[in-house]
């Protein structure tokens, strides 16, 4: 079954305004890890909001786990599609970590004991169990985002969407988040939609898609997408530093293949010299 399926979806924020998403056909398989790339204003965040019913499409249909999204089943859909947003400070409702993680589970009316178990599970899954009774305000950005992921996990969703959840974090916080979602995808089998403007974060995904002006313009394995550098640049996506280095070395006559992994590049260089 498809986890998410967009069929010819269009959406604009204002009538007569420009389309944020235009005739979009796009789907995600269950258990898949898909990275959605695009610069600011490319429509990638709109995609996230459409997928869990925060926005309603003007045209086209959206199916989540086979169910057509409509007003009546909105909350069933949201239980299955968790969204983590950009700003770590604007997603937590409670002062204490466990109270915040409990929020979603309380909303759907789970029993007390079950909520307790879900908190255990969710905090463990994001590696924050020792912070259970800490104050959210005192955590680092990466830790706050992990709490936000835990808050979503407590609902046991089948799909998690990260809507630029790494944009405001430092490099270490970004890595923490990417590690956590990769693990959730592999160990819990959760479908992951990672929306980002950092190409290197897409490396671990099964598939990368690039959006520009509300349209899907590129699609393929991350490596295949990154290989089309000139095209990426026209969509205002910059190569990560390692890509720039590969390119320069090649321009200097060294025969190294494109990679986003420092280990691999070192190996490549070693093979080119004596």
């Amino acid at each position: 079954m498809k986890a998410i399926e967009f069929a010819d979806v269009s959406f604009r924020y204002e009538e007569e305004g420009p389309f944020a998403v235009r005739h979009l056909n796009f789907s995600v398989e269950e258990g898949e890890f898909v990275a959605v790339l695009g610069h600011n204003g490319s429509g990638k965040s709109t995609l996230a909001r459409l997928a869990n019913g925060l926005l309603t499409p003007d045209e086209g249909q959206i199916r989540v786990l086979g169910t057509l999204l409509g007003d009546k089943n909105l909350y069933d859909v949201r239980r299955n599609v968790g969204v983590v947003f950009q700003n770590p400070d604007n997603q937590t409702v409670a002062t204490i970590v466990e109270d915040d993680v409990a929020f979603g589970a309380e909303n759907v009316g789970l029993a007390r004991e079950e909520i307790g178990r879900r908190i255990d599970f969710a905090l463990k899954a994001v590696g924050m169990e020792e912070y259970r009774t800490s104050t959210v305000a005192r955590l680092s950005g990466g830790q706050k985002q992990r709490v936000a992921i835990a808050g979503v996990l407590a609902l046991k969703p089948k799909i998690i969407i990260l809507d630029e959840s790494t944009a405001m974090l430092d490099p270490r916080g970004r890595r923490e988040i990417v590690d956590v979602v990769t693990r959730l995808n592999q160990e819990e089998g959760i479908t992951v939609l990672l929306i980002t403007h950092f190409l290197e974060e897409a490396l671990l995904a099964d598939r990368a898609v690039v959006m520009n002006r509300g349209e899907l313009v590129m699609e393929g394995t991350p490596r295949a997408v990154f290989a089309r550098k000139e095209e990426l640049l026209t969509y205002n996506l910059a190569l990560p530093r390692i890509g720039v280095i590969c390119e320069r070395l090649r321009a200097g006559g060294m025969n190294v293949a494109d990679t986003l992994d420092a280990e691999v590049l070192a190996k490549e260089i070693a093979q080119c010299v004596s």
């Binding site: 925060l54 968790g82 969204v83 997603q91 929020f103 979603g104 909303n107």
Partner: peptide, 13 residues
Amino acid sequence: DELGDAMDARCYT
């Protein structure tokens, strides 16, 4: 605004 979205997304009714 963002908090409202985050609460909605976590099934707050």
